[in-house]
């Protein structure tokens, strides 16, 4: 009697939806998966059967041994960590301060500064590389992590100011006014009332700031390429460039670079995705 049973129709649609999404998920994961499983295999197994999981016979950590022996992976890693953490800290601190000043106070030049900062969202800081290198060498910061940190702070500020402003605007007026009536100073209001309230937004900003810093190759390549100061991205790039033919080492170093990000991503994906989908970035 009924030809278009909505139930059945929906089932079919759901099936197609899942099929497409699953296919794409496979496409997204397959390359990463292949690299990781092969990094745990002997050279022979890598070539004989690249899609097989490591078995007791084919299991081998030789790649990892080589990498840890021949490169300073731990150092690269801690360089990246230092650079990221310090940059993020200042991006959040200065970003929130600027956002607060621009949204809370009206003063001459407010608009101009706002536009100037907003332009930084669209215009990549890379375009100023020629003069940045110049500047860093006159400050004697070339080949130090500080050069990277300064650049990354400047790079992260615009988006941070933008996102944090949106949140600061939502803080109820009454809170600030109550504090002002009690004679609390502006700086104290900022640190004791505003900062705690925008903490969730700061977490989002932190994740957004972290990704491009951790993954950047350009500035490490130009500002701090020398031994001892490489970030992990540059370190991996140089290492693999050197040992292209040592498949075990290449796969192991890729795995070593991927896994920490993977773990962090699994921990923070909720935060990140909430940030992306909350409309904070528009």
């Amino acid at each position: 009697m009924n030809f278009a049973l909505p139930m059945k129709h929906n089932r079919g649609k759901a099936l197609v939806t899942h099929a497409v999404l699953m296919t794409y998920t496979l496409i997204a994961l397959f390359p990463i998966f292949v690299v990781i499983i092969n990094s745990f295999k002997t050279r022979k197994a890598i070539f004989n059967d690249p899609l097989a999981l490591p078995t007791p016979e084919t299991f081998s950590l030789v790649g990892f041994e080589e990498v840890l022996l021949r490169s300073e992976f731990g150092l690269f890693f801690s360089n990246s960590l230092i650079v990221s953490v310090v940059s993020i800290f200042f991006v959040l601190l200065f970003g929130a301060m600027i956002a607060w000043a621009l949204t809370e106070y009206s003063f001459k030049g407010n608009m101009l500064i706002g536009i100037l900062v907003a332009m930084g969202i669209m215009i990549p800081i890379r375009l100023g590389t020629v003069s940045i290198l110049d500047l860093m060498s006159s400050l004697h910061l070339v080949n130090t992590l500080w050069a990277l940190i300064l650049v990354y702070i400047a790079q992260g500020l615009p988006l941070a100011v933008y996102i944090l402003s949106e949140f600061i605007k939502q803080v109820p007026k009454e809170l600030k006014e109550a504090a002002r009536c009690d004679g609390v100073g502006e700086i104290k209001i900022f640190f004791t009332i505003i900062v705690p309230l925008i903490r969730p937004a700061m977490a989002t900003v932190a994740v957004f700031t972290m990704i491009p810093i951790w993954n950047d190759l350009w500035f490490p390549l130009i500002l701090a390429p020398s031994d001892g100061n490489q970030t992990i991205t540059l370190g991996v790039q140089q290492f693999i460039g050197q040992y292209v033919t040592d498949w075990n080492s290449v796969l192991a170093s890729l795995t070593l670079a991927i896994v920490p990000v993977l773990i962090l991503y699994i921990i923070f994906s909720r935060q990140l995705i909430r940030g992306l989908t909350s409309g904070a970035v528009k």
Binding site: F90, G128, D134, L150
Partner: peptide
């Protein structure tokens, strides 16, 4: 920081 490391280098 923004002016010296981002805006100035770009203009320069």
């Amino acid at each position: 920081i923004y002016l010296t490391v981002s805006v100035y280098p770009l203009l320069d």
